[in-house]
Computed example of a mutant assay.
Amino acid sequence: MTASTEFPLFVSAGDILTDLVRTDDSRWLSVPGGAGWNVARAVARLGLRTASVGALGRDYFSDAIWNASVAADLDMRFMQRVDRSPLLAVVHETHPPTYFFMGDNSADLAFDPSLLPAGWMDQVRWAHFGCISLVRQPLGDTLARLAADLRARGVKISFDPNYRNLMEHGYEPILRRMAALADLIKVSDEDLRLLFKTSDEASALAQLRELNRAANVLVTRGPETATLYVGDSTFESRPPRVEVVDTVGAGDASIGGLLFSLMSAPQRKWPEHLAFALAAGAAACRHSGAHSPTLDEVVALLEG
């Protein structure tokens, strides 16, 4: 556990939930998850002081997330417990993924930044936001205000829209708001098509970049070439080839890898940061579930 006198260098304030996955007609598997939580675990596993910021209930599902967070060495001072029901993502088909969310008045919506430890903002260097937490009110407005407060203090902001079906309507205002605050935006090619409702990736990317010309943008395309846009410069790289077991959480591992690289090795050039991010995503694909790769796993792929 992180020493009480130290605060995280990185926080992820995205969704924390339970994936309830149907394995056959009458059996379900519950798995701690959420894009924001996955990113926090990815950065922590690579070796930086990290917190997943949010609120949980006091039920079995929330206990499982809490225990997994402790095992991941996350700073538990940033995870609040409240007397509300859990947020569930009910995945009733896996090929292709078909899902809905349960949690109209669930614990995540009760997150209160004023209850976080005093002084933590003075040490944090990057903060990550994204996915469905931003479209669940009043949580979305709470997180957007937190992102603005952090940015005003000089903290760098990472944003991953990570498209889900809750964003089908009414997402544009928060997309614009968060993109304007971001130093780094990560999207997949699928995110771009769904967010901007077009099959023309170039057009969608142009619309995204127009929201904040100063933000760096990472576009991942599964096993195909990824592109990192930094100002007027463009860097491309292909992920290492691996035997894919599961792609769940690969995008979260990628952005976690990129953020870890930026924080731990600022002397690296942008192509090196990109290569590290893609190796982290590829390493995650070698395991079932949202695997958080170790630094050794990532380095092995970079050197392979």
Rank of each mutant, 00 (worst) to 15 (best):
E6L: 15
E6D: 15
F7P: 11
L9S: 14
A13E: 02
D24M: 10
D25Y: 13
G33I: 10
W37A: 10
A42N: 05
A44I: 09
A51H: 03
L56F: 01
R58T: 08
R58Q: 10
N67R: 15
V70S: 15
A72R: 11
D73F: 13
M76G: 09
F78E: 07
V82A: 02
D83I: 00
L88A: 13
A89W: 05
H92I: 09
P97Y: 12
P97T: 14
T98S: 13
G103C: 10
D108Q: 02
D108R: 00
F111Y: 01
F111A: 01
A118R: 08
A118I: 09
M121T: 09
M121A: 14
H128L: 09
G130Y: 06
C131R: 02
L134S: 08
V135W: 02
V135M: 08
G140D: 01
L143N: 01
L146N: 02
A147G: 01
L150D: 03
S158M: 03
S158P: 00
S158I: 03
F159W: 01
D160Q: 05
Y163T: 00
M167N: 00
E168C: 00
Y171A: 11
A182K: 01
K186C: 04
S188K: 11
S188M: 08
D200Y: 06
E201K: 13
A202V: 06
L205Y: 11
R209S: 04
A214C: 05
A214E: 11
L218W: 05
G222P: 04
P223V: 15
P223M: 11
E224K: 14
E224T: 13
T225S: 10
Y229C: 07
D232E: 12
T234D: 03
R238M: 14
R241S: 14
E243T: 10
S254T: 15
G256C: 07
G257D: 07
A265N: 14
L278Y: 02
G281W: 04
A282I: 04
R286N: 01
A290Q: 02
H291V: 08
G304D: 08
